[in-house]
């Protein structure tokens, strides 16, 4: 799945045009943003080497329904990512998660205890605070991401070099 079409919407002129025209489109713009980020997370999961233990079950994606990405993530429900069906669940249910998506605001400040095989994604830059394994950031009207390979190593996850090539920062 490509996200080329969405990325183009982030071109500066488009963004400015969107802002200048009408705030009535604000909701729609937010939806687009949510979809793009959800697609990023979906794609990142594809370039991630998951522990073999969970291969038989769906890929559990935990997020808060209050998070702006919830809708975008839910739209991908059932799709096959890394060979497993995408399954979005409420983070509050306390079920085992393969991917945990935090908003910048909701993310813990310090690193949570290591949960093997779990990928933590933080939506938004948070300087000097814990930023999860993958951090989605907006830069020059482009959606980019940072990868913390140490966090990934702790959780026993590996990323494809091709993914690392695209990352803004690799720690």
């Amino acid at each position: 799945m490509t996200v080329k079409g969405h990325a183009r919407h982030f071109a500066p002129r488009h963004l400015m045009a969107a802002a200048a025209l009408c705030c009535a489109f604000a909701c729609q713009a937010q939806n687009e943003d949510s979809r793009l980020k959800a697609a990023y997370i979906f794609n990142i999961s594809q370039f991630t080497t998951w522990p073999a233990a969970g291969a038989a079950r769906p890929l559990a994606v935990c997020a808060s329904p209050a998070h702006s990405l919830w809708t975008g993530l839910r739209e991908l429900e059932g799709k096959i990512a890394a060979g497993r069906p995408w399954n979005v669940i409420d983070a509050g249910q306390g079920r085992a998660c393969d991917i945990v998506v935090y908003s910048a605001a909701a993310a813990p400040n310090a690193a949570p205890p290591v949960v093997p095989g779990t990928l933590f994604v933080v939506d938004g830059a948070r300087p000097n605070r814990w930023q999860g394994t993958v951090t989605l950031v907006e830069e020059d009207a482009h959606l980019r991401f940072d990868i913390d390979t140490r966090e990934a190593a702790r959780a026993g996850l590996k990323f494809s070099s091709r993914l690392l090539q695209l990352a803004r920062n690799v720690l």
Binding site: K4, H6, A7, N43, F47, L166
Partner: peptide
């Protein structure tokens, strides 16, 4: 990968 992430 760039194609998937729209990274022209």
């Amino acid at each position: 990968a760039p194609l998937m992430f729209g990274d022209q």
